[in-house]
Simulated assay, not measured.
Amino acid sequence: MRTDQDVLAKIIEVAQKDDLIRAAFMNGSRVNPLAPKDRFQDFDIVYIVTSIDPFKKDHSWINAFGERVIVQVPDEMDLYLYPGEASQNRFAYLMQFSDGHRIDLTLFNQEVAAEAYYADSLRQVLIDKDAIFHEDEQHTSNDANYHVKRPDEHLFYACCNEFFWVSTYVAKGLCRDELPIAKTMMEGPVRSMLIQMLSWKIGIAHDFKVNVGKDGRWLKRFLAKDEWEAYAITYPNGDQWAMWEALEAMCRLFRDVGMNVAHELNYDYPLEEDKRVVSYLRGMRQN
């Protein structure tokens, strides 16, 4: 079984041996001193190369990293890309290995090296053959780019409005017995707005110098036990009754947290709009 040190050594070795690779650096949780450490952490790696084309023409070069379970090459897929969206200056390989390790490797042409490097405060140079990043030697990797941002009042209200507006879509889907659309709306826009409001509450408590992780992955670390339990019950199964209960729980929690955030930021919480929508949802459920 390979250790993390073995994987990192291989990443550096591949970069050192290939003259087309001029630099390598690491982003992500492995260079975040505040991120919880576990065996599931990815290696988020960037190679700065003289030209991407030779790597794209023959993907066999990634075999050097180890035995894979699966690989994804998102820049060659059309699932989430719009026409013309793929960049000529970047190319990525997402690799899951049979020993449990994962490498998310992105190649960038050297013309955009500085842009790629300085875009992320979570960064650590692994190899720099041409001293491209020598001016950044004193940088200490940190998660400043990922701190919860203080909302202005317009953004605060937009979050409230989106939460309650899309809640009606959830209710409509449940009334029609259309589970896919109800679940998609609940776990998409509605949950995103709830996570946003919870993130702002946590941000206030930490002077907006805190990172709750992508999609609120670290909310549990920052919420009080009762707050976390109130949030956890908003994850229902596919049962219609359970989804109605979860929707009501989401509305209760959103109101509690939203009013707290509004008070702390001296904003107005749209309580009357909240009440009208909640009453409307209850009426839909009863009919």
Rank of each mutant, 00 (worst) to 15 (best):
M1P: 05
D6Q: 01
V7T: 08
K10V: 09
V14A: 03
A15C: 01
D18V: 03
D19G: 07
I21T: 00
A24S: 10
G28T: 01
S29Q: 11
R39C: 06
D42V: 05
D53V: 10
P54M: 01
K57P: 01
K57G: 10
H59Q: 13
I62P: 03
V71C: 02
L81E: 06
A86N: 02
F91Q: 04
M95Y: 05
G100M: 03
R102L: 02
F108M: 03
A114Y: 08
E115N: 12
A116R: 02
Y118T: 08
A119C: 09
L122N: 00
R123W: 02
V125P: 11
I127S: 08
K129V: 07
I132Q: 08
S141Y: 00
Y146M: 11
H147L: 15
K149M: 14
R150P: 07
D152F: 03
H154F: 08
A158C: 12
C159V: 15
F163M: 01
F163E: 03
W165F: 14
T168S: 12
V170T: 09
V170L: 06
D177T: 12
L179Y: 15
K183C: 11
K183D: 14
T184Y: 11
R191D: 01
L194D: 00
W200P: 13
H206N: 11
K209Q: 15
L219H: 09
K220F: 04
R221M: 05
F222K: 05
A224K: 15
D226K: 11
W228K: 11
I233S: 09
Y235D: 04
G238P: 09
W241D: 15
W244E: 02
E248G: 07
F254H: 08
R255L: 01
G258M: 02
A262H: 02
N266G: 03
P270E: 02
L271A: 08
E273D: 03
K275Y: 11
M284I: 12
Q286Y: 00
